[in-house]
């Protein structure tokens, strides 16, 4: 049963992500990537990482996909960007890297004989509860740092993308921005 599920979702994920990489249409690439992300979460459920699977669905197909959809609508993606790059150097580099990865993976069990669990799964506890226990004891500091990083990313996103969507602050000179502010204050006074 587990084998059937694994092979089914493996084939689906590989097919979806291949389409994402190969498609020339941004909309199709985006849709197939969203589907592939959901298929990935199936592996997390198979691996008893329930909480991770739910987070995967919420963060990737919820938040990240919405951002990409926004970007796709903002940019003119109908204008085709040529992507025919069949350089032999790139093909060679890719194949060498992929081979190295495969070799590393198949020699891993030899090197991994003496690995023991640093934070073993607590017995008799559901996965989300176990994750909570470990996350808020052993990984509290990285968790807080990640929270600060997300805050910084949010502010950066607002500052870079959100301000004055109709006119580009980054393109304008300092004097033009000052003029704009003056105009706005004058408007307020007249009102």
């Amino acid at each position: 049963m587990e084998a059937i599920a694994f092979y089914l979702f493996a084939v689906l994920t590989v097919a979806m992500f291949s389409y994402t990489v190969m498609s020339s249409q941004a909309l199709y690439a985006l849709s197939s990537m969203a589907a592939g992300m959901i298929m990935i979460s199936a592996f997390f459920f198979l691996l008893n990482a329930d909480f991770l699977g739910v987070v995967q669905i919420i963060v990737y197909t919820g938040a990240v996909m919405a951002l990409y959809a926004f970007g796709m609508m903002f940019f003119d993606t109908t204008r085709a960007v040529k992507e025919h790059n069949t350089s032999k150097v790139i093909v060679l580099t890719l194949s060498v890297l992929a081979t190295l990865l495969v070799i590393t993976i198949f020699t891993m069990p030899i090197a991994a004989e003496n690995i023991s669990a640093a934070f073993p799964e607590p017995a008799g506890v559901e996965n989300p509860k176990a994750v909570g226990i470990v996350l808020f004891t052993k990984y509290l500091v990285p968790f807080e740092v990640a929270a600060v990083m997300l805050l910084v990313a949010m502010i950066a996103g607002i500052v870079m993308a959100g301000k004055k969507m109709d006119r580009s602050l980054t393109k304008m000179k300092e004097e033009e921005i000052a003029m704009m502010h003056q105009e706005e204050t004058q408007k307020k006074v007249t009102l």
């Binding site: 990482a49 690995i115 669990a117 640093a118 073993p120 799964e121 994750v131 470990v134 052993k138």
Partner: peptide, 8 residues
């Protein structure tokens, strides 16, 4: 490996 570090 019965470890939660990977999930973290």
């Amino acid at each position: 490996y019965g470890d939660l570090t990977g999930q973290m």
